[in-house]
Amino acid sequence: MTAMKTPLFILLAALPLSACISFGAAPPPTLLTLTTQSAVAVGQNQNSATSKSITLQVPTVPQALATARVPVQATATSIAYVKDAQWAEPPARLFARLMSDTVAARTGMVVLSTVQAVGDPSAMLGGELRNFGLDATTREAVVTFDASLTRAGMQSVEKRRFEARVPVAAIDAPSAAAGINTAANSVAQQVADWVGRPR
Protein backbone atom coordinates (compact mmCIF):
# COMPACT_ATOMS: atom_id res chain seq x y z
CA MET A 1 0.00 0.00 0.00
CA THR A 2 1.46 3.30 -1.06
CA ALA A 3 1.73 5.92 1.77
CA MET A 4 -0.05 9.16 1.06
CA LYS A 5 2.17 12.20 0.82
CA THR A 6 1.14 15.21 2.90
CA PRO A 7 0.71 18.30 0.70
CA LEU A 8 3.42 20.93 1.19
CA PHE A 9 0.94 23.69 2.13
CA ILE A 10 -0.29 21.59 5.08
CA LEU A 11 3.27 21.14 6.35
CA LEU A 12 3.90 24.89 6.09
CA ALA A 13 0.67 25.65 7.90
CA ALA A 14 1.77 23.47 10.79
CA LEU A 15 4.92 25.54 11.37
CA PRO A 16 4.83 28.23 14.07
CA LEU A 17 4.10 31.69 12.66
CA SER A 18 7.40 33.05 13.99
CA ALA A 19 9.29 30.52 11.88
CA CYS A 20 7.69 31.86 8.70
CA ILE A 21 7.59 35.62 9.21
CA SER A 22 10.32 38.00 10.36
CA PHE A 23 9.41 41.40 11.74
CA GLY A 24 13.01 42.61 11.92
CA ALA A 25 15.57 42.54 14.71
CA ALA A 26 14.26 42.48 18.25
CA PRO A 27 14.46 45.90 19.94
CA PRO A 28 16.99 46.39 22.74
CA PRO A 29 15.72 45.98 26.32
CA THR A 30 15.66 49.74 26.83
CA LEU A 31 15.38 52.74 24.50
CA LEU A 32 17.48 55.91 24.83
CA THR A 33 16.16 59.43 25.27
CA LEU A 34 17.36 62.90 26.35
CA THR A 35 16.72 64.78 29.59
CA THR A 36 16.96 68.55 29.68
CA GLN A 37 19.14 70.37 32.20
CA SER A 38 17.03 73.54 31.69
CA ALA A 39 13.25 73.62 31.75
CA VAL A 40 10.41 76.09 32.26
CA ALA A 41 8.77 75.64 35.66
CA VAL A 42 5.55 73.65 35.75
CA GLY A 43 2.55 75.99 35.74
CA GLN A 44 4.47 79.00 34.42
CA ASN A 45 2.41 81.00 31.93
CA GLN A 46 3.97 82.15 28.64
CA ASN A 47 2.35 84.57 26.21
CA SER A 48 3.74 85.66 22.85
CA ALA A 49 1.73 88.90 23.14
CA THR A 50 3.84 90.06 26.07
CA SER A 51 7.14 88.21 25.49
CA LYS A 52 9.46 87.73 22.55
CA SER A 53 8.77 84.56 20.59
CA ILE A 54 10.78 82.23 18.41
CA THR A 55 9.72 79.50 16.02
CA LEU A 56 11.81 76.36 16.27
CA GLN A 57 12.04 73.99 13.33
CA VAL A 58 13.02 70.33 13.66
CA PRO A 59 16.58 70.23 12.28
CA THR A 60 17.47 68.37 9.13
CA VAL A 61 19.90 65.45 9.44
CA PRO A 62 22.28 63.50 7.19
CA GLN A 63 21.31 59.94 6.28
CA ALA A 64 23.45 58.48 9.09
CA LEU A 65 21.16 60.18 11.63
CA ALA A 66 17.89 59.41 9.84
CA THR A 67 17.50 56.32 12.01
CA ALA A 68 16.86 55.42 15.63
CA ARG A 69 20.29 53.78 15.86
CA VAL A 70 23.33 55.52 17.39
CA PRO A 71 26.17 56.12 14.90
CA VAL A 72 29.84 55.64 15.69
CA GLN A 73 32.57 57.30 13.65
CA ALA A 74 34.80 54.22 13.41
CA THR A 75 37.44 55.83 11.17
CA ALA A 76 37.68 59.09 9.26
CA THR A 77 35.72 57.53 6.39
CA SER A 78 33.54 54.82 7.97
CA ILE A 79 30.51 54.70 10.26
CA ALA A 80 29.16 51.84 12.37
CA TYR A 81 26.35 51.72 14.93
CA VAL A 82 26.42 51.07 18.69
CA LYS A 83 25.25 47.57 19.56
CA ASP A 84 21.89 47.43 21.39
CA ALA A 85 21.52 51.22 21.36
CA GLN A 86 18.36 52.73 19.91
CA TRP A 87 16.62 56.08 20.43
CA ALA A 88 12.99 56.19 21.54
CA GLU A 89 12.24 58.52 18.60
CA PRO A 90 14.23 60.17 15.78
CA PRO A 91 17.28 62.10 17.07
CA ALA A 92 16.20 65.32 15.31
CA ARG A 93 12.93 65.41 17.27
CA LEU A 94 14.63 64.59 20.57
CA PHE A 95 17.14 67.39 20.01
CA ALA A 96 14.45 69.87 18.89
CA ARG A 97 12.46 69.24 22.07
CA LEU A 98 15.59 69.64 24.21
CA MET A 99 16.41 72.93 22.46
CA SER A 100 12.83 74.15 22.89
CA ASP A 101 12.96 73.57 26.65
CA THR A 102 16.43 75.10 26.94
CA VAL A 103 15.74 78.21 24.85
CA ALA A 104 12.49 78.89 26.73
CA ALA A 105 14.13 78.45 30.14
CA ARG A 106 17.32 80.44 29.45
CA THR A 107 15.91 83.31 27.37
CA GLY A 108 12.32 83.74 28.59
CA MET A 109 11.18 83.59 24.97
CA VAL A 110 8.00 81.77 23.98
CA VAL A 111 9.01 78.87 21.74
CA LEU A 112 6.46 78.13 19.02
CA SER A 113 6.05 75.31 16.53
CA THR A 114 5.71 76.20 12.84
CA VAL A 115 1.96 75.64 13.13
CA GLN A 116 1.61 77.90 16.19
CA ALA A 117 3.73 80.63 14.58
CA VAL A 118 1.29 81.40 11.75
CA GLY A 119 0.61 85.15 11.99
CA ASP A 120 3.12 85.64 14.84
CA PRO A 121 6.12 87.91 14.05
CA SER A 122 8.56 85.58 15.77
CA ALA A 123 12.21 84.88 15.18
CA MET A 124 13.00 81.64 13.32
CA LEU A 125 15.55 79.01 14.37
CA GLY A 126 16.43 76.01 12.23
CA GLY A 127 19.51 74.22 10.99
CA GLU A 128 21.18 70.86 10.50
CA LEU A 129 22.12 68.35 13.18
CA ARG A 130 25.45 67.18 11.73
CA ASN A 131 26.69 64.85 14.49
CA PHE A 132 24.75 63.06 17.20
CA GLY A 133 26.73 60.00 18.19
CA LEU A 134 30.10 58.66 19.27
CA ASP A 135 33.60 59.06 17.87
CA ALA A 136 35.54 55.84 18.43
CA THR A 137 38.83 57.43 17.42
CA THR A 138 38.71 59.93 20.31
CA ARG A 139 36.28 58.03 22.61
CA GLU A 140 33.92 60.99 22.78
CA ALA A 141 30.24 61.71 22.39
CA VAL A 142 29.86 64.39 19.73
CA VAL A 143 26.93 66.70 19.00
CA THR A 144 27.31 69.25 16.18
CA PHE A 145 24.54 71.63 15.16
CA ASP A 146 24.72 74.13 12.29
CA ALA A 147 22.18 76.73 13.35
CA SER A 148 20.34 79.22 11.14
CA LEU A 149 18.65 82.17 12.84
CA THR A 150 16.42 84.88 11.45
CA ARG A 151 15.73 87.39 14.20
CA ALA A 152 12.29 88.98 14.52
CA GLY A 153 11.81 91.86 12.09
CA MET A 154 14.98 91.00 10.13
CA GLN A 155 15.40 89.56 6.63
CA SER A 156 19.01 88.42 7.02
CA VAL A 157 19.98 84.95 8.22
CA GLU A 158 22.68 84.39 10.84
CA LYS A 159 24.49 81.05 10.78
CA ARG A 160 26.75 79.53 13.40
CA ARG A 161 28.15 76.08 14.18
CA PHE A 162 27.88 74.73 17.73
CA GLU A 163 29.63 71.61 18.99
CA ALA A 164 30.20 69.77 22.24
CA ARG A 165 32.44 66.77 22.90
CA VAL A 166 32.17 64.67 26.03
CA PRO A 167 34.60 61.82 26.93
CA VAL A 168 32.98 58.36 27.22
CA ALA A 169 34.26 55.34 29.11
CA ALA A 170 33.28 52.84 26.41
CA ILE A 171 31.60 52.54 23.03
CA ASP A 172 28.35 51.03 24.31
CA ALA A 173 24.71 51.96 24.90
CA PRO A 174 24.99 53.29 28.49
CA SER A 175 28.02 55.45 27.62
CA ALA A 176 26.30 56.71 24.46
CA ALA A 177 23.17 57.71 26.36
CA ALA A 178 25.01 59.61 29.09
CA GLY A 179 27.60 61.23 26.84
CA ILE A 180 25.25 62.36 24.07
CA ASN A 181 22.77 63.68 26.64
CA THR A 182 25.47 65.85 28.22
CA ALA A 183 26.79 67.04 24.85
CA ALA A 184 23.29 67.80 23.52
CA ASN A 185 22.49 69.90 26.60
CA SER A 186 25.74 71.81 26.20
CA VAL A 187 24.97 72.61 22.56
CA ALA A 188 21.37 73.59 23.37
CA GLN A 189 22.62 75.98 26.07
CA GLN A 190 25.12 77.55 23.66
CA VAL A 191 22.35 78.02 21.08
CA ALA A 192 20.00 79.53 23.69
CA ASP A 193 22.62 82.05 24.80
CA TRP A 194 23.30 83.01 21.17
CA VAL A 195 19.59 83.38 20.38
CA GLY A 196 18.89 85.36 23.54
CA ARG A 197 21.71 87.87 23.29
CA PRO A 198 20.59 91.43 22.41
CA ARG A 199 21.58 92.77 19.00
Rank of each mutant, 00 (worst) to 15 (best):
M1D: 12
M1I: 11
M4S: 15
M4T: 15
M4L: 14
T6N: 11
T6Y: 08
P7V: 08
I10S: 12
L11M: 08
A13R: 15
L15A: 09
P16N: 11
P16V: 13
S18C: 12
I21K: 13
S22G: 11
G24W: 08
A25H: 10
A26R: 13
A26I: 04
P27T: 01
P27I: 00
P28W: 00
P29T: 04
L32W: 01
L32S: 07
T33H: 07
T35K: 10
T36E: 05
T36M: 03
T36Y: 00
Q37R: 10
A41E: 09
V42Y: 11
G43Y: 14
Q44S: 12
Q46I: 01
A49Y: 10
S51Y: 10
S53M: 04
T55D: 03
T55S: 14
L56R: 12
Q57I: 06
Q57W: 11
Q57R: 04
V58K: 01
V58Y: 05
V61K: 00
P62A: 07
P62L: 05
Q63F: 06
A64W: 10
A66N: 13
T67Q: 10
T67C: 02
A68G: 12
R69V: 00
V70R: 14
V70S: 01
Q73E: 08
A76P: 01
S78G: 11
S78Y: 12
S78A: 15
I79D: 09
K83F: 09
A85N: 04
Q86G: 05
W87I: 05
A88H: 01
P91M: 04
R93K: 10
L98A: 03
T102L: 02
V103F: 07
A105L: 04
T107C: 06
G108V: 09
G108R: 14
M109K: 06
M109G: 09
V110S: 03
V110P: 08
V111W: 01
T114H: 09
T114R: 15
Q116N: 14
A117H: 00
D120M: 10
D120L: 13
P121E: 12
P121K: 07
P121R: 01
A123E: 06
M124Y: 13
M124A: 13
G127V: 07
G127I: 00
G127P: 03
E128P: 09
N131H: 02
N131P: 00
L134G: 12
D135G: 07
T138G: 06
R139F: 11
E140V: 02
E140Q: 15
V142W: 01
D146Q: 09
A147Q: 12
T150N: 07
T150W: 01
R151I: 03
A152G: 01
M154C: 11
S156P: 04
K159S: 14
R160K: 15
R160V: 06
R161A: 14
R161V: 03
R161P: 04
A164R: 13
A164W: 00
R165D: 03
V168T: 14
A169N: 13
S175W: 14
A177Y: 05
A177H: 06
I180N: 10
I180S: 00
N181Y: 08
T182I: 04
T182A: 11
A183M: 08
N185V: 07
S186H: 11
V187M: 02
V187K: 14
A188V: 09
Q189S: 15
Q189G: 05
W194R: 08
V195R: 08
V195C: 12
G196I: 02
G196F: 09
R197S: 12
P198R: 13
P198F: 10
P198Y: 02
